[in-house]
Amino acid sequence: MVLSRFRRATGRLLALLGLVSPLLSVPLLPALAAEAVFPPAGGIGLVPPAGMTLSRSFAGFEHPSGASIVIVAMPAEAYGQLAEKFTPDSLRATGFAAVGAAEPLAVAGGEGRVLRGSQSARGIAYTKWVAVVRGGDGTGLVTVQVPEAARAQVPNQAVEAALGTIAFRSPGSVADQIAAMPYAVGDLAGFRPVRTLMGNTLLLTDGPKDVDPEGTQPLVIVAPSLGKSPVATGQQSAFARKALGTIREVKDIAVTDESRTSEGGAVLIRLRATGKDVRSGRKVGVTQTIRFEGKSYLRVIGLAGADQPDALARAERVAASVIPR
């Protein structure tokens, strides 16, 4: 029951952020856990292909060509349910075109399944792999994507070898994970940290529940962009409104207020809106602040019942205190 709630809550978080993406992957060579490189405070690591280094934006690795390895950690108990649905058919709706069925993946002291395939995003074609792995006290989703144009720089054989080196260790505390984030939060405004995701996303709530699939507690999510595609000057407002529409569990979203401010070289767009919870139909309030700076942006979302306006005001305090490192 706890696992089911965790999966729903994690799915809710990914959907709210528009981060749900296809899973893909491959077979491999055995690995030495001692060789694995781990994201700061992370519990899952691997030996990356040549030229790939630890990312400062997310839990995983990146290459100058645009290739990336993203690691999402989950409880060990999640593996069974994830592996059960780890099929080409279940991932087709995400845009991932799998080549063949999932195959076993050797993991030191554990087990795994992998799928290979391809996907296009923003006009770029990628070769992709997704692995569902279990070891030690954790489960992981390891997603690799390599632009077709960069396959000579990050060849398939190198990716497959890297997946064969996936290793587990005890992760750092939530405090350690927050300290390793690519941004600092100066004011929690009465919210408490619940968990982190992908090494760059922070979930805050106000209430006793760590897992709240019904969404009865106020929620704040802080997450930077994964890519380095700048939003053109003058297009920030349109981008922010489009991003607001990706909050999938809120329907009938209507913007009630918008503000634009500057801070140094950054542009901040804040939107306030109302809507209805997709499941319960209850009225909710939404606040979203996006900080556009250079080639990236940082997004803070606050959600609360319509009868909790103070929670939204506090969420905006959190947003105002977030500073990229």
Rank of each mutant, 00 (worst) to 15 (best):
L14G: 01
G305S: 15
V267M: 09
G265F: 08
P88G: 07
D257S: 13
M52T: 03
R325Y: 03
T246Q: 11
V26L: 12
K228H: 12
D277S: 13
A15H: 09
G234C: 11
V300C: 06
G51E: 05
S321P: 04
I69P: 08
E249P: 01
T289N: 07
V146N: 01
G138D: 09
R241D: 11
D307V: 04
Q236P: 08
R291Q: 14
E316D: 15
I44D: 00
E293T: 10
A184P: 00
A101V: 06
G186Q: 14
E214R: 10
V142C: 02
R56Y: 03
R192T: 14
V20K: 11
A33P: 15
R241T: 08
V318N: 05
K228A: 15
K128I: 12
R279P: 01
K276D: 10
Q177N: 01
S296R: 15
R325T: 12
V142D: 01
A311N: 06
S170A: 14
G186E: 14
S57F: 07
L203Q: 13
F86A: 06
T165V: 01
Y297N: 14
S68I: 12
A150M: 08
L303K: 10
A33R: 12
A167Q: 01
V47F: 04
G100V: 07
P39E: 03
T256V: 13
A125Y: 04
E160H: 00
A162E: 01
G11P: 04
Q119Y: 07
T201E: 05
G190P: 06
T139V: 02
A266E: 08
A273P: 06
S225N: 11
D307L: 05
A59N: 02
V278R: 15
A180E: 07
M1F: 08
P224H: 06
F58V: 06
W129M: 03
D137S: 14
A184I: 08
S120K: 11
Q235N: 12
I71C: 09
V194H: 05
R8V: 13
K128N: 10
P193R: 02
Y183P: 05
P193G: 02
V114E: 11
L32N: 12
F168D: 00
G45E: 03
S90E: 15
S262D: 13
E77N: 05
G51Y: 07
E214Q: 12
G136K: 05
V267F: 07
V114P: 05
L54W: 02
T216P: 01
S118P: 00
A162I: 00
P182Q: 04
S229E: 14
R270K: 13
F61Q: 08
F239I: 07
S57V: 06
G227P: 02
A31D: 02
E77L: 09
A76F: 10
V211L: 15
R248L: 12
V300L: 11
V220S: 03
G42I: 04
G234P: 11
V300Q: 08
A150S: 14
S229G: 09
M1Q: 12
A273W: 10
L312I: 06
G60V: 07
A121W: 10
R56D: 13
F96S: 13
S237H: 06
